[in-house]
Design a protein around this nucleic acid. Structure first.
Length: 482
RNA sequence: CGGGGUGUGGCGCAGCCUGGUAGCGCGCCUGUUUUGGGUACAGGAGGUCGUGGGUUCGAGUCCCGCCGCCCCGACCA
């Protein structure tokens, strides 16, 4: 048995090692776990008619395109196509968390009631918390969030202010027993969430962590192809006095939002002059001022006087879906759970905390709400389950088969090969429904003369060209940021 | 949790009022046909009618209980 020891000095480092900004691999989907896929061999059950329970667009399309299946109210199984999207979103969220200096860990889904009794939330949280007992009749719960557990982990091991700040996150399934689950994965009971927690010595430090996360969020949403607006929010049951929620725009959103066009004009991913760095206090300050100086409000908090002060051509209005929420709440938990570090003056202090959530599974639905048409989903390049679909209009035809094999070979895991023996219309419809950014249409008509058709899902634009040129167009068309 | 709706082959639905051999469309399987936007024809497989009880000679249908799911509202990543 090999014994592993953690190097001592790791915990002594005052600040985490600098992480390079947003790694962007040459090939996007390089987790190495996703195999190429032929439709005849895959498990991608598309359906023609809309299941009766699905009312909103994203829910309907997720069921029809074979992304998910519901197993109970508000609980979903993720099928291969849906899982790819979920993983792609998760990957971008992770890259931006890492880039901000946060460290990933993984906490369990099941938590002991004891921790929640310490913070006082075991009783406060109410019926939304799923409570269970193990065989020894110990009270347990399926975690709806992780403030208590992270605070417990922190207090066990962090002793000195020299080890601060700590910015920790995980991406884990949560359960909140919603009274009324709805809108498919947008308001499920079980959902995948990225939750981060910051620990700082004082208020000033906590504010820096808060701003870092805010920047990470804006970058994340931009990479997902979404227009996100940060809005001041109430802190709710998490408590605290500084909080923002992030609303993305979609025609079917739950609430009306009003905001200044400034939010759309900022490039959060820009480098160099005008860009924002996570490790520069000045940049973070400037960034935070940008985020808070422009008008933004939901209908509940809408202030018509302030709204009238915004130049008319800069007023933007639309429907919004909440996809993230960040909180600063000081020593609420460190005090209740007695987590302390030794300060510079030798006295014990309760670190200041913040928590930061992104609804990863909700984002799958939210992106679809923001990007679809009558025919189906229109995936942004950055999270599409496949970059392209290869439609073999006549399997068995030598020229078609050869052309498809070549394309499939070149694209590998980035392509979904529709090799079904079905009518052309079936394949066109399914490809539109599944929403691949590109469609490579190979039919006997063009194959004879060495041509295929390339269709752009978003615009509907089609061109006839050689397979080589099509492949070039596809890779050239990748916007690595969005 | 209040209000409303609904549950019948994989999906969408009819049948229930007025009890009497469980049907239609799509999908699926076989064959023919068609071949660039869900083709056509023929044959076939597949259903404890959500569930428990009751009424009746007989219940998908009538009565009572329970459960699931959906929508509106209050509540929320």
């Amino acid at each position: 048995m090999v014994r592993t020891r953690f190097p001592r000095d790791v915990t002594k480092r005052a600040t985490p090692p600098r992480v390079r900004a947003a790694p962007r691999p040459a090939r996007r989907r390089t987790h190495g776990i996703e195999p190429p896929m032929r439709l005849t061999q895959g498990f991608i059950p598309t359906i023609k008619e809309t299941p009766n329970e699905a009312q909103i667009a994203s829910h309907r399309l997720m069921l029809r395109a074979g992304l998910v299946r519901q197993t109970s109210a508000g609980i979903y199984a993720w099928l291969p196509l849906g899982l790819r999207v979920l993983r792609n979103i998760e990957r971008i969220v992770r890259e931006e968390q890492d880039a901000s200096g946060a460290q990933e860990l993984l906490m369990p889904t099941i938590q002991p009631a004891e921790l929640w009794r310490e913070s006082g939330r075991y009783d406060d949280y109410g019926a939304e918390m799923l409570r269970i007992q193990d065989r020894h009749e110990r009270d347990m719960l399926y975690g709806p969030t992780n403030e208590e557990m992270i605070t417990d982990l922190f207090r066990q091991s962090v002793r000195s202010y020299r080890e601060l700040p700590k910015l920790l996150y995980h991406i884990q399934w949560k359960f909140r027993d919603e009274v009324r689950p709805r809108f498919g994965v947008m308001r499920g009971r079980e959902f995948l969430m990225k939750d981060a927690y910051s620990f700082d010595l004082d208020h000033a430090g906590a504010v820096v962590s808060y701003r870092k996360m805010m920047l990470a969020y804006m970058r994340t949403f931009q990479r997902l192809g979404l227009k996100a607006i940060p809005m001041e929010a109430d802190t709710g049951p998490i408590g605290g006095d500084l909080s923002h929620e992030f609303i993305i725009l979609a025609p079917t959103g739950e609430s009306q939002v009003f905001y200044d066009a400034a939010f759309e004009e900022i490039d959060y991913l820009a480098r160099g002059a005008g860009g924002f760095r996570h490790d520069s206090a000045a940049d973070l300050e400037r960034f935070f001022r940008e985020m808070t100086s422009h008008y933004a409000a939901t209908d509940e908090k809408h202030d018509t006087v302030k709204w009238d002060a915004v130049a008319p051509e800069r007023r933007r209005e639309g429907r919004g879906i909440e996809v993230g929420h960040i909180f600063y709440f000081g020593d609420k938990y460190t005090k209740a759970m007695n987590a302390t570090v030794t300060g510079p003056d030798g006295k014990q202090v309760h670190p200041e905390m913040g928590s930061y959530g992104i609804g990863v599974s909700r984002l799958v639905g939210a992106v679809i709400e923001a990007s679809h048409d009558d025919a189906g989903i229109i995936w942004p390049e950055s999270i599409a389950p496949f970059r392209a679909a290869i439609l073999n209009l006549k399997p068995g035809d030598a020229a078609c088969d050869a052309a498809c094999a070549k394309l499939y070979d070149a694209l590998g895991a980035d392509a979904l090969y529709d090799d079904r023996e079905d009518r052309a219309g079936v394949k066109f419809n399914d490809a539109d429904l599944m929403g691949h950014p590109w469609q490579l249409v190979v039919g006997p008509r063009g194959a004879a003369s060495g041509k295929i058709e390339l269709k752009r899902r978003a615009s509907g634009e089609r061109v006839e060209l050689t397979p080589e040129d099509a492949l070039t167009r596809i890779s050239a068309g990748v916007d690595r940021r969005a």
